[in-house]
Write a protein that binds this DNA or RNA. Sequence first.
RNA 1: UGCCUCGUCGCCAAGUGGUAAGGCAUCAGACUUUGACUCUGAUAUGCGCUAGUUCGAAUCUAGCCGAGGCAA
Length: 341
Amino acid sequence: MKKVLIGMSGGVDSSVAALLLQKQGYEVIGATMVLFDINSSCLSSKALEDAKKVCDNLKIKHYVIEFKDIFNEKVINNFIECYKNGYTPNPCIECNKHLKFGALYKKAKELGIDFIATGHYAKIEEGFLKKAQAVEKDQTYFLYGINKEVLNHTIFPLQEFKNKDEIRKLAIDNKLPVATKKDSQEICFIPSNNYRDFLEKNTKDIQKIGNFINLNGEIIGSHNGIAYYTVGQRKKLGITNNIPLYVVNINPLNNTITLGEEKDLYKSDITISNINILVNDFSGNIKAKIRSRAKESSVNINWINDNTIKVKFMEPQKSVSKGQSLVFYKDDICLGGGIII
RNA sequence: UGCCUCGUCGCCAAGUGGUAAGGCAUCAGACUUUGACUCUGAUAUGCGCUAGUUCGAAUCUAGCCGAGGCAA
């Protein structure tokens, strides 16, 4: 019997995924990763209990695996450093790369388990990472960074579902204790959903008041520190104008933030680094997007070196933020991507 | 000191006798496994103050207070 280690968050998706694997005849072992101090978040201890309950329910083994150190290094520190330097991090992408499809995969191998699984909405076919059947829930954007080799040892049991309702229905029909649990959406280690508070509590010297300037370089107000803003942001600027103003640029060198109008947010030329390519044939009509829920657009690719690509979009993209990821697609295949610099 | 102009939400600003538009900011929801964006909703019993004219005043009148300008 094939063994599979499934990452269980305590939510509906990963619980149903475990159920499906079991029905498909796998020997399923549940694993919940403890990634940060549980006391700091009641949500997290609840999540752990829920995962356990589901495993009891399915009569499968459940491991609790501590990855605090690696999470702290690869996700939280990275998160803080990015914001300090005027970048806008995407912690979920880092977590997928280093934790779920990094440390967890390693752990599975140590335990003599060949496959890992998660409740992600994505598909794996013939070694390709493809968009989920439920396109509107597709999460390949968050998965482009994972190691290609790991793909061949990964199962996404939710890949054929058309929508979330079907999954919830399965959970209810099978009496999973988390069937009606609300979807999570905030950054997992910031349950308050306020990353600015988090930065204040977890770093020193992050508040550095500086100037808001307009496109002509004139000072038009003062900001609370570049870490509190991201390109494209409109709210919480506190600057009045007859038309709305947006952050168009963050300048860490002189601690200023440039504000402009909506029309000033569009860019066609984007450079990325930290490239991860998931296919052998990276050519043809390639499309790309710069945020999970954006529409893809055709691009031209220009390799600068092994780890840097200049990407030119046919349609200008709005609010391009350094630190966010650009992900390539060809039809429903996710080709890989990189981080905007 | 004389004359002129102006004073409407935190900011800008409609309204010029008929019962307070709008934009920006702010707040709250929705959307969303990042950050943002977006969408929806909320926000002045009151228009510098005090009297008066009128059925009715932010809108007219007088005085006062405040801001700016012109003149000596």
